[in-house]
């Protein structure tokens, strides 16, 4: 059937047959999107505004909510740059060099994706908890890791680690290392080559990775809930705060904070779309598709 040398009219028939299938698939996809994406998202905003603007404003400006917002931004501000630096280093090493155990390293980078977030949190409790491996030593030296900011950051870093590296590796691999080789033969230092050739070449993938990493860092619930200790106003990030409010029958406030989170996600998405559209040519050039 699928003979590449078939006459034109057969392709034509295939296209005409395709109309109904296409229409059906498109309707299905749109219905699915509406049902599982737009409606729930819309309901968050509707629920948040149910008692008017004043209730919304109060919910997101009361001290515990503000501290949750501050904590969420702080955790993301530490976790994301860290993952960017380590992610670039890992991707660079994997894409540009050959070494023993490379595929093992790639598997390890993917590990946080395949491990349940609850486990990601629990490993830190097992490691740093009072009954854990390093617990007594930390206690003796008065260092707080879990149930405090460092634990939240660690869990977030662990969960969001693959995003940057995963975006960069295929792109860097596709680009190869010819540009870098040229730069080096022309006498550029390795650092200069990296900052003027390698990094600019992959900036769009990097940017996309950072956006994804950031979105997940701010929205992470599972791993963070295990290491947080749920101290209201101190170790509760926005997702945890939403759950607490919901459990206190305060659904308007819960959805108000949730809508802030959803808003952050939408801003991320808009930013990405805008930049993709604005710099479409630049992106196409660096991606060399």
């Amino acid at each position: 059937m699928a003979d590449p040398t078939t006459p034109v009219y057969r392709t034509d028939t295939a296209l005409r047959d395709g109309f109904w299938i296409r229409a059906l698939l498109l309707t299905l996809a749109l219905a699915f999107l509406t049902l599982f994406l737009f409606l729930p998202l819309l309901s968050v905003f509707v629920e948040a505004s149910r008692k008017g603007y004043a209730a919304f404003a109060e919910a997101v400006t009361e001290p515990d909510a503000l501290s949750a917002i501050r904590l969420t931004l702080l955790v993301a501000a530490i976790a994301v740059p860290f993952n960017v630096v380590v992610g670039i280093a890992a991707a660079w090493a994997i894409a540009k060099f050959e070494f023993r155990g490379k595929s093992l390293l790639i598997s390890f980078i993917d590990l946080p994706f395949s491990v349940s977030p609850v486990i990601s949190g629990l490993v830190f409790v097992l490691l740093f908890g009072a009954q854990g491996f390093l617990g007594p030593w930390l206690k003796a030296n008065n260092i707080e890791i879990i149930f405090a900011l460092p634990g939240l950051v660690l869990a977030t870093v662990f969960v969001t680690f693959p995003f940057v590296a995963r975006e960069l590796i295929p792109h860097m691999q596709a680009l190869g290392s010819t540009d870098e080789e040229a730069a080096l033969t022309l006498g550029a230092s390795p650092w200069r080559t990296f900052f003027t050739i390698t990094l600019p070449n992959v900036k769009w993938s990097l940017f996309y990775g950072v956006l994804l990493c950031n979105a997940r860092a701010m929205g992470e619930f599972g791993a963070v809930t295990v290491v947080s200790g749920r101290i209201r106003g101190l170790t509760t990030t926005m997702p945890l705060h939403v759950e607490i409010l919901y459990n206190e029958y305060n659904s308007v406030a819960a959805f108000a904070v949730a809508s802030l989170l959803a808003g952050l996600a939408l801003v991320t998405l808009t930013l990405k779309t805008y930049l993709e559209w604005h710099y479409a040519d630049a992106i196409a050039a660096t991606k060399r598709h």
Binding site: V125, F128, G129, A130, Q131, G132, G135, K139, E144, I146, F147, G229, R230, I231, R232, G233, L234, I244, N247
Partner: peptide, 20 residues
């Protein structure tokens, strides 16, 4: 005064694990 709430057994576990 800070509050932390959860299932009683789970909360005990958290304190055993070092919640201050």
């Amino acid at each position: 005064i800070r509050q932390s709430h959860g299932g009683s057994g789970a909360q005990a576990r958290t304190v055993i694990d070092g919640l201050n």
